[in-house]
Nucleic acid binder design. Structure first.
Length: 445
DNA sequence: TATGCCGGGAA
DNA sequence: TTCCCGGCATA
């Protein structure tokens, strides 16, 4: 049943196209409206299209006015391709170079051989790279959805060489949604994993999480120059606190509370200033299914923007990329395994990898006690800043008192659970598992 | 009785 | 896969 609120699947509105402007150059834009003389003028999908159909193109550049074109005049998916197109010098094009999409400007187009001389706009670059490309290797539209390639301080050649660590990072942040408070019903998805176009509505919640993600890039870690160059730090940002609040969002970072959703400590760095280590830092894309990682912040942001998020809207400066990557230290001289998690937004005990280690140690302890008979409690250091305690505790896990009767059911732990800590009326602060009546991941063993 | 969480079903 | 909840085990 169609409600009529959504465009038909085949709607051509919103399609990205390139169209010829008065200056003889093609500019990218988007189909904004379709005018068709067909009997169903309200039908905007391509079912009733005729050769007389006219498409209103809204150009990406605000300086350019909307204009109507016939389909034969438009280049893009569903319209004509590049064949036969004549490009003028100065034409902005896109091509794949070193596995990445780059911008280039046409120097000259040989109509006979359909070969072009283009000059790549290397972002790093004093050196301009000039290439010869065939017309069919050239695009007028950004296929990788990057609107900011030119701003990104990315060494593309180095990116292509990236290899190695493929560990997945999990940096899921739950943003408590008010509409769910007190209700057991599932609310509308409030995930920040949104498609392009829906994001604005969700930015209040996302901003909160954005703050948390910003903290994952610690001020102590090496920063590429582009970071500082691009970080138009908002006036509310505190430079002395060491907080890496650098989003352009107008609201200041939450100041007083050392806790946020999911018990994430905001002033973690202040409580435990990180030991200066010269380990290399890897920025890991946390987009679901993506294992991309790189060693520069700007590169990971470029990746996220290009590959996952899509073009940035005009005047947008929400630094949304920060939400989808996490910073990881690759320990050179093998530090204690859990320390690396200090870099992450997720509290250590909620980190799946940490939990695995914990469970692993627990099992190992059980095993050893079973083998040598001595019930020696295992002591695992737990930094529990997340629960109002600022001193490291030791969580005692004893294999001796495992319940004999119910194998498979874990002995009830004495730890405070979200229910106890937050109470029923603050259910939205519970960890997800507690909400689902599952084993608590925040205070659990 | 309150709480923790397993198992399983719905979305 | 995520979310939710009945119901059992345990404190």
């Amino acid at each position: 049943m169609s409600t009529g609120k959504r465009l038909a699947k085949r709607s051509i509105i919103g399609t990205r196209v390139a169209a010829l402007a008065d200056d003889g150059l093609y500019y990218s834009g988007m189909i904004q409206a379709v005018k068709t003389p067909a009997p169903f003028p309200e039908n905007n999908n391509c079912i009733n299209l005729t050769p007389n159909t006219r498409y209103t193109v809204r150009f990406d550049s605000v300086k350019m006015k909307n204009r109507e074109y016939r389909d034969a005049e438009l280049i893009g998916p569903g319209f004509r391709g590049m064949t036969g197109v004549r490009l003028q010098p100065g034409q902005r094009v896109f091509l794949t170079y070193n596995g990445r999409e780059v911008r280039a400007d046409v120097q000259n187009h040989d109509y006979e051989t359909d070969e072009l001389r283009v000059q790549i706009q290397s972002p790093t670059a004093e050196v301009q790279i000039e290439l010869k490309k065939r017309l069919d290797e050239i695009r007028l539209l950004e296929s990788r959805k990057s609107a900011r390639l030119a701003d990104v301080d990315t060494d593309f050649a180095r990116l292509a060489d990236m290899a190695g660590d493929r560990r997945r990072a999990s940096a899921t942040i739950e943003v408590p949604s008010h509409h769910m408070q007190g209700s057991r019903k599932r609310g509308p998805s409030s995930s920040c994993d949104l498609g392009y176009g829906e994001r604005d509505d969700q930015m209040n919640e996302c901003n909160a999480a954005l703050v948390l993600m910003s903290l994952s890039c610690s001020p102590n870690s090496p920063r590429p120059s582009a970071w500082g160059g691009r970080s138009s730090v908002s006036p509310g940002a505190s430079s002395s606190s060491g907080s890496s609040w650098r989003s352009g969002t107008p609201s200041p970072p939450p100041a007083s509370s050392s806790f946020s959703d999911e018990g994430i400590a905001m002033d973690y760095e202040e409580i435990h200033p990180r030991k200066k280590r010269i380990n290399s830092v890897v920025f890991v894309c946390t987009w679901r299914g993506c294992t991309y990682h790189t060693n520069t912040c700007s590169a990971i942001e470029a990746h996220i923007r290009n590959t996952h998020l899509g073009p940035k809207k005009e005047g947008d400066s929400d630094h949304e990329e920060e939400f989808y990557y996490t910073e990881r230290e690759v320990a050179a001289p093998a530090p204690p395994p859990t320390l690396s998690h200090r870099d992450m937004c997720r509290p250590p005990h909620e980190d799946p990898e940490y939990q695995r280690q914990l469970v692993g140690s627990f099992r190992q302890g059980l095993l050893s006690t079973m083998q040598n008979g001595s019930a020696r409690p295992i002591s695992i250091p737990v930094t529990h800043h997340w629960s109002n305690s600022h001193s490291p505790k030791h969580m005692r896990l004893s294999g001796a008192n495992g319940s004999p009767g119910s194998p498979g059911r874990r002995p009830r732990s004495d730890n405070k659970k979200c229910r106890k800590v937050y109470g029923m009326d603050q259910r939205d602060l519970w960890c997800t598992q507690c909400k689902w009546k599952k084993a608590c991941t925040r205070f659990g063993d």
